[in-house]
Write a protein that binds this DNA or RNA. Structure first.
Lengths: 365, 365
DNA sequence: CTGTTGTCTGATAACGTTATCACATCAGTG
DNA sequence: CACTGATGTGATAACGTTATCAGACAACAG
């Protein structure tokens, strides 16, 4: 009875019950409680029931902090995303969580929102809370890379997605953006286009750059010259490329001001493509009759633009799955053997044909 | 020298250095190290420097788990989001983090992705890791509410955003969706429309419902009858409303099949509106000449649709800021006094006029 | 009967911090 | 010189869990 009062007081004080409270009330040792809630070791059925009754009664939940501290493992992985609004992030997370959840891991997301300060704060928080590993999808920055390296050197498993990071212990999962860009461009060439612009070139984005390289390679492969005036990016100083639609819009405006505007446009991503389409419409031009447009990413909205957008799809969910799988491998191997060699996975993209690309280029020009 | 070897061995084993390691190497007590890294209590300048040197040398970072366990506070708040792809989520998080970061808190995001299982896993992970408080923006579900209640009863500060949750200790921040819906509808009425449809009605979404109520109230206030056939939602069994664009598309199709289709459409959100516009285009109708459309949310893309979308903007970042502020208040007051009364904040929306609404309804019909 | 094995339970000591107390030291005050 | 109060340092004991060891008892083989 006295023990009961003790418990009551604790509960009323708003404190969480602990193994000790459970043990006292059930009349067993804390270790036995631990064994019951973890289903580990030998426990007699009678004990088990007695303990479980009290656990339910007090609505006990083990303290993850204490548990993680003792176990030296949190069963949590961190996910560091460039920004949250990006459909890519969403799909990626879905793929990651699908794997994690099935393996008993939780995940905490952090976003850098393109701010170095936030990226560091995020990494810092994840590391300080001793997540078991981190999946990183932010863009490369010198300071970000430095931080990342210091984490890896501290033996924290890391996998990067959609970006690069040279380190023998860091796996990498990405889509083959270059090949995707190559295919998109090749398709435009095959449709008869000769003046094909690339919209949204930017040094900031590794994936964007690889798409651009695919564009260049395709032109080269088909004997077309790269015309500098047809490669446009965000206005030099228009900030850190915040609104990609706006990039597309402004870039397209500049293309349309040329003496010989392009008959086809390959945009760095769908949002850029949408911006470009908007500029064309404002200019009284038709897609695809006057200009064909191809985007990249196949965001959900791409099927609902006017006209629906031809675009390149990358297997985002699958990238998430692969990244999570690789990370868990590293986490679990870390316990015993020595780390395996770096793995690099490069998944294929594929072109999705819709109505923003015509079968043939406009007759004149 | 011997001490040095000891450290080396630890470092090589990939273990993190601890206060004890630092203390041993600096020749002080662990407590002194703690005081230095926390800048608390009295420490002489000489000690401070000695310790800091070793801290830098071993690249020491305090173990957040141990610290949190001891301090009974993690300086982390959890954010539970309905889905991550939503622009609303992104802006909300930005507002929240703006406040949190400045107050020294980190945040971990979890997404439910409309899955009850994931929502629970997320809440569970957050709670188990003893976050100091949670901001919840998921939709209401019976089981979610039950979980939430149990967390609140355990004395965990909770603030809900954009949804409801009746509890004397849970603050609520939201935008006035009803008023926003009212204004949008009023605007269409003032432009002369009489047959105004509502697209995307759904019992699932609290905010959507409030927008719908605003629509109803506006019709009533202006003496217009509510016509049931003009209120459409997702096809009964087309899944959990996954693609809102598709909802808009299908719903609009059905409206166009009516003998007397509407001359204006108020969509539950911008994506629905975009889907509806797409259906109109496929039907050979012009926006706004044949049908006017108003959306809700003012997603970044809304300015780039064709034509650009008239929509209602809700102050999302501000909701984030307010929610974070309220939560921190509760977290910090919890330390001493008794909890304050529930606060409810309702922020104003405002209409953004673009080209999807014409000044006057089409002449005939 | 002794020894072995398997099952069950508990005591103890960590995990890495920090709150708290206790003890020194030193300056200034009356 | 005794007293106060500020300053500086360390020992100890938690926070809530679990790994590890050790003991107890039963069943069974030799």
């Amino acid at each position: 009875m006295k023990a009961k009062r003790g418990k009551r007081e604790k509960a009323e004080a708003g404190k969480h019950p602990t193994v000790v409270d459970i043990a006292a009330r059930a009349g067993v040792a804390p270790m036995t409680v631990s064994r019951v809630i973890n289903e580990s070791g030998y426990v007699s059925e009678a004990m088990r029931e007695k303990v479980m009754r009290v656990v339910k009664e007090l609505n006990y939940h083990p303290n993850g902090l204490a548990r993680s501290l003792k176990r030296q493992s949190t069963q949590v992985v961190g996910i560091l995303l460039p920004d949250i609004v990006n459909p890519f992030s969403a799909e990626l997370v879905r793929g990651i969580q699908e794997v994690l959840l099935s393996r008993g891991y939780a995940s905490f997301l952090c976003t850098s929102e393109r701010s170095i300060e936030r990226e560091q704060a995020g990494l810092r928080a994840l590391f300080d809370h001793r997540v078991d590993g981190i999946i990183v999808a932010t863009r490369e920055t010198p300071s970000g890379n430095e931080w990342l390296r210091s984490l890896v050197d501290r033996n924290l498993p890391v996998v990067v997605v959609g970006r690069d990071f040279e380190h023998p212990l860091v796996d990498r999962v990405t889509a083959d953006h270059e090949k995707g860009g190559h295919e998109a461009t090749k398709y435009l060439i095959a449709a008869g286009h000769k003046r094909i612009a690339f919209v949204g070139v930017s040094m900031q984005s590794g994936t964007g750059l690889r798409r651009f390289q695919g564009y260049l390679a395709a032109l080269r492969d088909h004997g077309l010259a790269v015309r500098e005036e047809l490669v446009v990016g965000p206005d030099s100083l228009s900030g850190p490329g915040y609104s990609t639609q706006d990039d597309g819009y402004q870039s397209m405006k500049r293309l349309l001001a040329l003496r010989k505007p392009p008959t086809a446009v390959f945009a760095r991503n769908d949002f850029t493509a949408i911006g470009a389409m908007c500029a064309l419409r404002d200019h009284g031009l038709s897609v695809p009759d006057d200009v064909s447009i191809v985007g990249f990413d196949n965001v959900p909205l791409a099927a609902y633009t006017s006209p629906p957008l031809t675009t390149v799809e990358q297997p985002t969910v699958e990238q998430g799955r692969q990244a999570a799988t690789l990370l868990l491998e590293r986490i679990e191997e870390r316990r015993d053997g020595r780390p395996r060699d770096r793995v690099e996975i490069n998944l294929n993209c594929h072109l999705i044909l819709r109505q923003s690309t015509g079968r043939r280029p406009p007759a004149r020009r």
